[in-house]
Every structure is written in structure tokens, then in C-alpha cells.
């Protein structure tokens, strides 16, 4: 099956002054399959928006290429398959919501009633039917975001690309956008979006990519990351020195307790060593890493590396 979106060895340098350059992306490669939701997460400056802007042909890659349904993203033809929601979408705000969608429809070659019908269908879908004839400048942030999603869907695209669709929204707004994204999946749309709100990604994505300093450090299912179990060993007293000798360099003190995280495959080996030293074990708990922790770990290891 053809990938909906294929990114190959994408590299992007920004010029800073005459000699300096900033590397925003370092050989990013990934594929988004048809009908899946893939979320790209990473801290600010990781290269998420750069990736999305290259997909939308707003920025040009220094190296590498992007294909949309097998078509080079540089071609306007590729954008026939794409709907795009920019971060903090900005509209021609003297227009009403309906007028803006009609304008979007005309840009996509829709004529007369076809555009009007689609506009109202989408306004109903994003629950803006009552505000359809209101000037966009009077919209709240959440309403503007929903209108942004509606305009992205005007041409019935197969792939919807969203840059931080939940940023700046309150919890209700975020839940609404999440529901909208899930409803798009039911319509067999492919969704590719960026976010730094990991909880939202974890909840709605089929796959997650973690981008750190322009490099993809993880690509897989959120459940795979979340369900990877680790163990938390607590020992009464300060035994960091002994643990360090046993190779557990990341032991920390919380109050009077020494805490150390152990991977499942290392558990018995570590426990034998701890018992061998007769350390006063306080507790041993099985725990699951949240996406936040994985993310922080990825950022940490990248920075250290």
C-alpha cells in the first residue's frame, strides 16, 4: 500500500548571519500510512513546524524530499490531497466564517452551490453553524481553531496536516479538537500533526514520532512506549555510592530514601546484587512510563549525547 506521506532524509539549515547556520532537521525520514493518525512530538525548536512547513511547500528542504500520495510536495498537484491547519491560524478577519470557507472553496476550484453546501456541512461538523455569518474577528480562539480545521477540510483532502492544533486551547477546546481529529479518522483521513501536549498525542495517535533537535528519536505506537514496564526500587538510607559501584549511576535521593529505576530485563541481576550487599529494601514497585517521561528521557539523552 502506498504511503500517504513519505519523508526521506529531510535536512533543513537556516542561515544565521553570513557564516552561521542553524540545523533544524537532520535527515528525518518517516512514512505516514493511509488512514492513520501520526503525532510528531518534541520540545520547542525540535523541528516540528519546519517539517510541516516543508510538507506544505512553505519552506524548502536543504536536502531530502517529501512525497504526498507519491507526488513531490513541491508540485501544486500534491496539495490537492492536503488540508492544512497552521499553528495559530490567521484569517482575513473582516470575512464571516461562511465567506472564508467559500473563499477557500474558490481557491480549490469549487463553484456556486457546491462550495456553499460544503461550507455549511463543515460549519455544522465543527459546530459553528450559529457563528457562520459572524465576522471572524469576533471568534474566540477555540472557534477560530475549529474554523481552521473546517477550511483544511474544504476540498475533502485525503491527508490533513495540523501544526499544534491544540495549542492555546482550554481543556474543553482541546477535547473538542481531539474528538474532531478522531472523527476524521473514521472518515478514513490520514492525519499528521505536531504537538507538545503529550497527553493529547498519547490519547489519539496510532503512532508517535519523537523529534529532538531535528532527529527522530522514536517512532512507534504510544502504547508500546507506555506499556514498557520499569521497576522502581526504594532503599532506606543513602546507598547511592554502593549502587553506583553496581553500575546503577542514576540513583537519586528523595528524602531519606534512595530511589533507582530498573529496566525489566535487568531486574533480577540488580536485585541479586542489592540482596548480596544486604541493603534495607523499602519497596519495589512495577510502574509504566508515561509519554512525558519517555519524552524527557529522549530529550535528556540527546542533549547529553
Amino acid at each position: 500500500m502506498q504511503a500517504a506521506l513519505r519523508i526521506e532524509d529531510l535536512t533543513k539549515h537556516y542561515k544565521k548571519g553570513l557564516r552561521e547556520k542553524i540545523v533544524a532537521l537532520r535527515g528525518l525520514s518517516l512514512e505516514v500510512h493511509q488512514g492513520e493518525i501520526l503525532g510528531l512530538v518534541g520540545p520547542n525548536g525540535a523541528g516540528k513546524s519546519t517539517t510541516i512547513k516543508i510538507i506544505m511547500n512553505l519552506l524548502f528542504p536543504t536536502k531530502g524530499r517529501v512525497e504526498i500520495m507519491g507526488i513531490n510536495a513541491r508540485s501544486p498537484k500534491a496539495r490537492e490531497h492536503l488540508g492544512y491547519l497552521p499553528e495559530n491560524p490567521s484569517f482575513y478577519d473582516h470575512l464571516t466564517g461562511e465567506e472564508f470557507l467559500l473563499f477557500t472553496g474558490r481557491l480549490l476550484g469549487m463553484e456556486g452551490n457546491e462550495g456553499r453546501e460544503k461550507a455549511w456541512e463543515l460549519l455544522r461538523m465543527v459546530r459553528l453553524e450559529d457563528a457562520g455569518r459572524m465576522a471572524i474577528r469576533k471568534y474566540s480562539k477555540g472557534m477560530a481553531q475549529r474554523l481552521g480545521i473546517a477550511q483544511a477540510l474544504m476540498g475533502d483532502p485525503r491527508i490533513v496536516v495540523m501544526d499544534e492544533p491544540m495549542s492555546g486551547l482550554d481543556p474543553i477546546g482541546r477535547a473538542e479538537v481531539s474528538q474532531l481529529i478522531l472523527s476524521l479518522k473514521k472518515q478514513e483521513k490520514t492525519i499528521f500533526f505536531s504537538s507538545h501536549i503529550l497527553h493529547d498525542v498519547e490519547a489519539i495517535c496510532d503512532r508517535v514520532g519523537i523529534l529532538v533537535e531535528g532527529r527522530l528519536t522514536y517512532l512507534g505506537t504510544p502504547s508500546r512506549i507506555v506499556s514498557t514496564p520499569t521497576w522502581l526500587l526504594k532503599i532506606e538510607g543513602d546507598y547511592r555510592g554502593i549502587l553506583r559501584e553496581k553500575g546503577l549511576t542514576h540513583a537519586t535521593m528523595v528524602g531519606r530514601i534512595t530511589q533507582v529505576e530498573i529496566q525489566e530485563d535487568e531486574l533480577w541481576e540488580v536485585m541479586d546484587a542489592v540482596r548480596g550487599c544486604n541493603l534495607p529494601i523499602y519497596s519495589l514497585e512495577k510502574r509504566r512510563c508515561s509519554l512525558e517521561e519517555i519524552f524527557a528521557k529522549e530529550v535528556g539523552s540527546e542533549t547529553a549525547g
Partner: peptide, 14 residues
């Protein structure tokens, strides 16, 4: 400046 151009250039037009 307002980046409303993104909405336009993301459509299949040159």
C-alpha cells in the same frame, strides 16, 4: 505578517 498567507499558499495554487 499575520501569516494568513499560509492558508492561501497551502492550497493547490502556484
Amino acid at each position: 505578517d499575520k501569516r494568513s498567507i499560509y492558508m492561501v499558499l497551502s492550497k493547490p495554487m502556484g
